[in-house]
């Protein structure tokens, strides 16, 4: 366990080695929240209402802040694995006495922790200015708990896509498909509350809402029933994907080709 914590802290140190870049990243989240706040502001104004499908304008802005914090903060582990396979660095990752997937999980968590913290700080300041006071403490608590499951699920997907690099090397196209599924069915662009019922049902039957909608929605409107439902869904999907990931990893190892001399 100690070794994985060390990998995590090494990744944090690595991320803050360049403070300029570290701070520069925060500009993008500020810009996105500003644009989305403008779009939702106009929508509420044209609809001439304060509430759309149970969510107010401040709810929307804070929802988007949390969703964007997640989206921009989550490391693209598939790209790291793919790059390591292409440039041959994977040789060093594989020949150390640790589990390959747990190595990437720890490094990704270290990377994600730094990015998400920064996004959360900058995003909260911008959201506060544009939409007023943040959600209640219970919202922060529920978001934090469901964030763990959301992160593990995201890791499983990214790692599964990354492992495809052992066979096909380039995985950007798979990532793009995954990202769009999370954007739409995961509730990134619109909270699932905005969908027609039939699309909501499809969405809930898939793993994507548990990776994005769960923490963002519980953050802005904490709801005990929804919290347990989301947590249950996360436990189920995490179990499925951890099993799948372990299985695929075992199989894909044999197909690895390390480039270069």
């Amino acid at each position: 366990m100690k070794k994985y914590l060390s990998i995590l802290s090494m990744q944090i140190i690595n991320n803050i080695a360049y403070p300029g870049d570290f701070l520069g990243r925060s500009i993008s989240i500020a810009t996105f929240i500003f644009i989305f706040a403008g779009l939702w502001g106009t929508t509420f104004m044209i609809a001439n209402t304060d509430v759309i499908n149970g969510l107010t304008f401040p709810n929307m802005v804070w929802y988007f802040m949390m969703a964007e914090t997640l989206e921009l903060g989550r490391p693209r582990i598939n790209r790291t694995i793919s790059e390591q396979v292409k440039n041959g660095e994977v040789a060093y990752i594989l020949n150390k006495p640790y589990n390959f997937l747990l190595y990437h999980f720890s490094a990704g968590l270290g990377d994600g922790a730094v990015r998400m913290t920064l996004n959360l700080i900058v995003g909260s300041i911008v959201a506060w200015i544009l939409a007023g006071a943040p959600p209640p403490l219970l919202g922060w608590l529920m978001a934090f708990v469901t964030l763990i499951g959301a992160w593990i699920l995201h890791f499983c997907f990214m790692a599964l896509i990354g492992l495809a690099a052992f066979v096909v090397e380039e995985t950007n196209s798979f990532e793009l498909i995954y990202q769009k599924l999370v954007f739409i069915l995961g509730g990134f662009l619109f909270p699932i509350d905005m969908f027609p019922t039939w699309l909501q049902n499809i969405s809930y039957a898939l793993p994507f809402p548990y990776m994005m909608y769960a923490p963002a929605r519980l953050f802005v409107k904490p709801d005990v029933d929804l919290f347990w439902r989301m947590l249950g869904g996360q436990v189920f999907w995490v179990a499925v994907f951890v099993f799948l990931l372990a299985f695929v990893y075992q199989r894909s190892e044999k197909y690895l080709t390390v480039n270069g001399g």
């Binding site: 100690k2 990998i7 140190i13 660095e89 040789a91 060093y92 270069g260 001399g261």
Partner: peptide
């Protein structure tokens, strides 16, 4: 042809990390 040391950090950090990895 491949680096195992963390490129942006001093080598001492990688050495200490390897110490942990090799227990």
């Amino acid at each position: 042809q491949r680096p195992q040391l963390w490129y942006h950090l001093p080598a001492i950090d990688t050495f200490m990390l390897f110490g942990k990895i090799y227990e």
